[in-house]
Computed example of a mutant assay.
Amino acid sequence: MFEPFEKATKDFQKISKDNYDAMLRSYGELNRGFQDIGARVTGYSKQAVTDATSTFEKLLGAKSLEQAVEIQSQAAKKAYDSWVSEASKIGEVYASVAREAYKPVEKAVQKTATPTA
Rank of each mutant, 00 (worst) to 15 (best):
Q13K: 14
S26G: 08
S88A: 09
I71Q: 00
S82D: 15
E106Y: 05
V105I: 15
P104L: 00
K14I: 03
T55L: 08
S85Y: 00
Y80P: 05
N31F: 05
A52P: 01
D21W: 10
E6V: 15
S85K: 08
A52H: 05
G43I: 06
A79F: 07
S16H: 14
D21T: 07
F2M: 05
L59E: 01
F12A: 14
F5A: 10
A75R: 01
F2Q: 09
D36V: 06
T53N: 15
V105S: 00
A117F: 05
T42F: 00
Q110E: 13
P115M: 05
K14A: 12
Y80T: 03
M23R: 13
Q110T: 09
S73F: 09
A87F: 08
K10E: 15
E106D: 09
A98G: 10
K46L: 07
K58L: 04
K107A: 09
A101S: 13
E6Y: 12
A68I: 03
R40I: 01
S73A: 15
A79G: 03
L24K: 09
S85P: 06
S73E: 11
S85A: 12
A75P: 02
A101T: 00
A98L: 06
G91S: 06
E66K: 15
D11E: 13
D81H: 00
K46W: 00
G91T: 01
K103A: 12
V41K: 13
A8S: 11
E86S: 11
L59W: 06
E6G: 10
A108W: 05
K7G: 04
S88P: 05
E57D: 15
A98C: 01
D51S: 11
E106C: 01
T53K: 10
V84G: 06
L59V: 09
N19V: 01
K78T: 07
A52F: 11
P104S: 06
A68W: 07
D51P: 10
A101W: 02
N31C: 04
V109T: 11
Q35F: 14
Y80F: 10
S88F: 10
T42A: 09
K7Q: 09
A48Y: 01
M1T: 12
I71C: 06
K10S: 14
E70T: 12
I37S: 02
T116F: 03
T114P: 01
S88G: 10
G33P: 02
A95Y: 12
Q47M: 14
T114S: 09
F2H: 02
R32N: 12
F56L: 15
G33Y: 02
Q47Y: 12
Q72E: 08
T114G: 01
A62R: 00
E70D: 13
E86A: 02
Q110P: 00
P104N: 03
V49T: 05
G91K: 03
D51F: 04
S96V: 07
A108G: 04
V49N: 06
A98Y: 08
K103E: 12
S85L: 00
K58M: 02
Q72C: 06
S85F: 03
D81Y: 03
S45F: 02
N19P: 02
Y94W: 13
V49G: 01
V49D: 05
M1I: 07
A95S: 15
